[in-house]
Amino acid sequence: MDLPVIDLAPYLSVAVEANGDADVMTVSSELGELCKQVSQILKETGALLVKDPRCTVEDNDRFLDMMEKYFERPKEFKLLQERPDLHYQVGVTPEGVEVPRSLVDEEMQGKLKAMPKEFQPSLPTGPDPKWRYMWRVGPRPLNTRFQELNSEPVIPEGFPEWKDTMDSWGYKMISAIEVVAEMAAIGFGLPKDAFTSLMKQGPHLLAPTGSDLAHHGQEGTVFAGYHYDLNFLTIHGRSRFPGLNIWLRNGQKVEVKVPVGCLLIQTGKQIEWLTAGDCIAGMHEVVVTTRTINAIKLASEQNRSLWRVSSTLFAHIASDAVLKPLGCFAESPLASKYPPICAGEFVEQELGVINLKGNKGGS
């Protein structure tokens, strides 16, 4: 099954005409249908492919090229950017640190065993053998109950283009998420800014992973064990190596194919909270598949990097905002399963489970 692709250009052109004024912006019936389609796809699949004219293939390539160079550097060099004392919320997280939820959550393990064999995820045997880099994107609140770790961003030596490349790609992907969040809100019958107003000054993280296919390129290797993301929405640029599997709401397992020029958006736990489970956090894993093996062979022949870099950004609800079912969702019979909680508290609880205890983060 191929996921449908939504072109954001028609919505963007109307938003530009309205100059960002929510009261001026009128949504035509055609655009309203597109918004309903976005909300429906997020609800039914937990994943959405989009085209955003502001996010180009060249932007993604520039980012991937730099991150490949970084991850190819020796381990000793990368460990200079490690900040375990800051709970890995800035800088690099080495392989073997992050623990997939499916390894420690007994309730989840029970559900996995009950799945039909062909839809079961690959069970990890230990922590994820992937590296990750955490880079915060966007402004931060001056006053917050959740004092951010007062740490400067970590910039590796020898990468003069680092800050510009990270910030540029990070802001573009957040812009795409904001449009999808507005369209989903309209599709759900909520005010246009129901989600985006809660995202303002959120602890958004550009968090690319690096998986060494030269050393861990055997079919069946689990780079990211079966899990959901704890944030609001996650967005990925296209990776140069396939391997991402997602689970639809009906339990079906799908290997994702992201077309060139498209971005993949996945639902996280925070949107599940805000919609009282109408959208649920999408389950996914990253595993070396037959398609990955074929891509490794081709990259080897072409003398390209064998590091699989994910172009991933975690968009968050602001830490001091309260997560609770919004609008019509507050009347849902499931609303009581989603009691009000500060987004920052929620994130802290979730990070504790996956061995990244800290104030902020993605998953």
Rank of each mutant, 00 (worst) to 15 (best):
D2R: 15
N19F: 03
A22N: 12
C35M: 06
Q40M: 08
I41N: 11
E44N: 13
A47T: 05
K51F: 05
V57E: 13
E58T: 11
D61T: 11
D65P: 04
M66K: 07
E68M: 04
E76S: 07
E82F: 00
P84D: 14
L86W: 15
Q89Y: 05
V90E: 11
V92G: 02
T93H: 02
L103I: 04
L103N: 07
L103H: 05
D105M: 09
G110N: 12
K113D: 04
E118M: 01
F119T: 01
Q120N: 02
P124G: 04
P129N: 11
K130T: 07
P141D: 15
T144L: 10
T144N: 13
Q147N: 13
S151F: 13
S151K: 15
E152P: 08
E157V: 10
G158F: 07
G158K: 14
E161C: 07
K163N: 10
K163E: 12
T165L: 07
G170L: 02
A176D: 11
I177A: 15
A184L: 08
I186M: 11
F188Y: 12
L190T: 05
K192V: 09
F195K: 12
G202F: 06
T209M: 14
T209C: 14
G210E: 12
H215A: 13
G217Y: 12
G217A: 12
E219K: 15
T221A: 01
A224H: 09
G225Y: 03
Y228E: 08
I235E: 05
G237R: 10
S239K: 05
P242H: 02
N245V: 04
I246N: 00
R249T: 01
N250V: 01
N250E: 04
G251I: 00
V254Y: 08
V254N: 06
K257M: 03
V260K: 14
I265D: 03
K269H: 04
Q270F: 04
L274H: 14
T275M: 13
G277F: 12
G277H: 14
C279S: 13
I280R: 15
A281P: 08
V286G: 10
I296F: 07
E301D: 15
L306N: 03
R308K: 07
V309C: 03
L326V: 05
A330K: 15
S336W: 08
K337T: 03
Y338V: 02
G344H: 09
F346H: 14
E350G: 11
